[in-house]
Computed example of a mutant assay.
Amino acid sequence: MSSGVRRSSHLSRHLAALRQQRDLKPGQLAARLGASNLSKVGSLIRAFELGEPISDHWLEKLIAELQPDPEELRRCLELDQAEALEQLERERIAWEEWADEPIDPYLSIRYSPGAGLVKKVPSAFCSPRETEKREWARHRAEDWAADQLKRCRHKGILTWSRRERTWFDQYGLNPRRGTVTFEGRCTGAWMQVRGSQQRFLLGSGDEVITRSHGLDQP
């Protein structure tokens, strides 16, 4: 197995049943796995049984200790994989629909790894729809973004649409256009409070932004 993190359903329920058949509490099973922190690993095991992800390290130890029937293990893994692929396809379809929705272009200015703000691109650069005029408008928007970054001496990302971005180095140098895909959808800049899943940005007026700037994506 790889060293990643796995989320399971059929397998986790099967391993939970094997634990219960042996009349072991999660903490007792953690002790059998050689855990130094029984409470922490016991909670991890129980969370996995309820559908939370688990690292391959502990999953391999669980399988070695509980010794599920090889055929049943294979069946659970195949079912989990099939369901994961179906879920991924549903997420891809939802993301593609979301990515096609029009937005107001904006510039994300990154002051530090944990701080930044957003500036709306002037409307004069955003209205043309014809391909040639749109390309001209985007060039002007990139010039505007580079000037903004030069003034504040920071890096930034111009988001032209939910699929099109231009990355700038410090001082607005070296603009690089790129296309955002479903596979690379997590690229971007935002802030996040430790322990929270909520991502946010600050607007130029210090307002908190979470929607329409890529932070509400499926």
Rank of each mutant, 00 (worst) to 15 (best):
D169I: 01
D104W: 12
A31T: 06
S43P: 00
R22H: 12
E72F: 00
L85M: 13
A189F: 15
Q170H: 12
D216K: 08
L33N: 09
L85F: 08
D143N: 14
N37F: 02
L38I: 11
D147G: 02
V118L: 11
A189K: 13
G156S: 11
V5L: 13
E86N: 08
S108E: 13
R75E: 10
K40T: 08
S112L: 06
G184C: 08
S112N: 09
A17R: 13
A124E: 14
T131I: 12
H154D: 06
R90G: 06
R7V: 09
D216A: 07
S196W: 09
W160S: 05
I45Y: 03
L59N: 10
W190T: 03
V41C: 04
L66N: 01
E135N: 10
D100I: 00
R134E: 05
I209N: 01
P70D: 04
Q197D: 11
I63E: 01
Q198Y: 04
R110D: 11
W190N: 10
I157R: 14
V118A: 05
T159S: 14
R92W: 02
A189D: 14
W167H: 14
V41M: 06
Q198D: 06
S2T: 13
R163P: 00
R177Y: 14
A64G: 09
M1G: 15
A16S: 09
S12K: 01
G27M: 08
E78F: 01
A84W: 04
R176W: 07
A17W: 06
R134W: 04
E52V: 01
R211A: 14
R151M: 06
R90D: 12
R151C: 03
I103Q: 06
P175A: 11
D23Q: 15
R163F: 02
L149R: 09
R129C: 04
D56Y: 14
R185D: 00
Q20G: 00
C76H: 00
L88I: 02
K25M: 09
R163E: 08
R22Y: 05
W58Y: 15
S212C: 14
A141N: 01
A31S: 12
C186A: 15
E101C: 11
K61F: 09
S9K: 10
A189W: 14
Q28M: 09
S204F: 05
W144N: 01
K40C: 02
C76Y: 01
L107G: 05
R13I: 01
Q197A: 11
Y111Q: 15
Q170G: 02
S3C: 11
D104V: 11
Q198S: 05
A35K: 04
Q148W: 00
A84G: 00
T179F: 10
G214D: 07
D147A: 15
R140D: 13
W160F: 09
E142S: 15
T179A: 07
A141E: 03
L44Y: 12
Q87R: 14
V118N: 07
P128G: 04
L50Q: 14
L149C: 03
F200V: 03
W144G: 02
R90E: 15
Q217I: 07
L24T: 06
C76D: 01
L24S: 07
